[in-house]
């Protein structure tokens, strides 16, 4: 068990370090969110590994909380922060879905994609 725990911990640590590099590099808010998701998952894995190694159950409630907090975090960022430059007046940016979600937002998205492709890079 000792060797297994060390190898697994090393794998998790390297994975977490790589995810941190991606958090630092970005380039966009969403890339950081994704990398942070990986980090949260690895943190859950590390706590699970500790619980398995020591055969103790006190830390398991932390896993429940972490798995939910990670979800709330990435959804909030996807919903609010991802609409970066001109999204202040976008439908849905205020948390209230527009009247006809499919049509309207798809049109808006396409428009914005077009703009960015035309102007950026």
């Amino acid at each position: 068990m000792g060797v297994v725990a060390i190898v697994a911990a090393a794998l998790l640590a390297v994975g977490a370090a790589l995810a941190v590099v991606r958090v630092e590099r970005g380039p966009s808010m969403l890339d950081r969110t994704i990398a942070f998701d990986v980090l949260t998952t690895i943190l859950v894995g590390a706590i699970a590994l500790e619980a398995a190694w020591s055969r103790r159950t006190e830390s398991i409630p932390i896993l429940v909380v972490l798995s939910l907090v990670g979800f709330v975090g990435s959804v909030v960022i996807a919903r609010f922060a991802a609409v970066e430059p001109e999204g202040a007046d976008a439908p849905g940016a205020d948390g209230i879905p527009p009247v006809s979600p499919g049509e309207e937002r798809a049109a808006l998205g396409a428009e914005r994609v077009g703009e960015e492709r035309g102007g950026g890079e």
Binding site: V7, L18, D37
Partner: peptide, 28 residues
């Protein structure tokens, strides 16, 4: 535990190596 840790590690690699946002999402 080893397999799970390996998958977590490969996710770290994937999120760093894949070239764009949608590909990185698969790593997650």
């Amino acid at each position: 535990l080893l397999l799970g840790a390996f998958l977590a590690f490969s996710a770290g690699v994937g999120v760093l190596r894949f070239g764009h946002l949608l590909a990185r999402m698969h790593a997650v």
